[in-house]
């Protein structure tokens, strides 16, 4: 009972610390904009480095969706609606969610490990002693890069999944759905609001992943064990946060 209480207190303390940390990071964000070179470097390591995995995953997810959707739709003689099925599932759900999970695993963990290592090797302390705020120089650019990259990656994922590399390839080229009705049905059913919601979702996922990753890295125990623990908990917590947040956002957006 006592240990439960201690654990609970520790959890609340952690959440509280994360809040204060977030406020400090947000306050440092404008400083990140005044250093475009560092920001570009971080967009490279978060966004560009995740590009290949996102493009490949997007294509495969689109293909699988088209195969599965076709099997079901053909029973109702509604295989012409394949495009709508793929497009709505991708734009509303899988695009933002799968992208966020991939980026959390690929870039979020790397962020936490990098920051944790900088802490363990006194680099953050050294910056502080050189009168440079590590929140502005190290944390804020990485946070912002994640926030910028996530919606862009999610949009690329969606285009790959719906387009000629994914669902379209399987549906039109392989299963013989008419090209015109594939796109026509999509355009008739997908609203601009769906795209906007999708981008909002992925931006918020980016926010969550960035927050968790930089917090875990910055507050890692300054040992190799601490860094590896920060990396693992970044992936676990980010994934949980993405899925939970997705439920809440979906409930709000598609009432």
């Amino acid at each position: 009972m006592n240990t439960l209480l201690t654990t609970l207190t520790a959890v609340f303390a952690g959440i509280g610390r994360a809040q204060f940390f977030l406020i400090n990071v947000l306050a440092a964000l404008p400083a990140a904009l005044t250093r475009p070179r560092i920001l570009a470097q971080q967009v490279h390591s978060v966004g560009v480095m995740s590009l290949i995995i996102v493009v490949l995953s997007g294509s495969f997810v689109g293909m699988v969706l088209a195969l599965q959707g076709f099997r079901t739709l053909v029973r109702f003689g509604a295989e012409e609606s394949l495009g709508v099925f793929v497009a709505l599932v991708i734009v509303r759900e899988l695009g933002p969610v799968v992208t966020a999970l991939l980026v959390a695993g690929r870039a979020g963990s790397a962020l936490a490990a990098e920051i944790g290592l900088m802490k363990a090797t006194d680099q953050l302390s050294a910056m502080e002693m050189m009168a440079t705020d590590p929140l502005k120089r190290v944390i804020a650019p990485r946070f912002l890069a994640m926030l910028i990259s996530m919606p862009l990656l999610s949009a690329i994922f969606s285009v790959m999944a719906i387009g000629i590399a994914g669902g379209h390839a399987v549906g039109v080229s392989l299963l013989g759905v008419d090209d015109g009705s594939y796109w026509g049905q999509i355009r008739a059913s997908v609203e601009v609001q769906d795209i906007v919601d999708s981008l909002i979702k992925s931006t918020l996922f980016g926010f969550a992943v960035a927050w968790i990753a930089v917090y875990q890295g910055y507050h890692a125990a300054p040992t190799s064990e601490g860094v590896s623990r920060a990396t693992t908990s970044t992936v676990v917590l980010s994934s949980l946060a993405i899925l939970a947040l997705d439920f809440v956002l979906t409930a709000f957006m598609f009432r």
């Binding site: 966004g47 949009a155 981008l199």
Partner: peptide, 28 residues
């Protein structure tokens, strides 16, 4: 920041924005 990195980042940003445009105009 070396030049190839700048090019890659610029390419990535443009690709992302293009994807958003495709979604908005081609899909929706």
């Amino acid at each position: 920041v070396n030049r190839s990195l700048e090019v890659l980042v610029g390419f990535f940003i443009c690709l992302g924005i293009a994807a958003i445009f495709v979604l908005t105009f081609r899909v929706a």
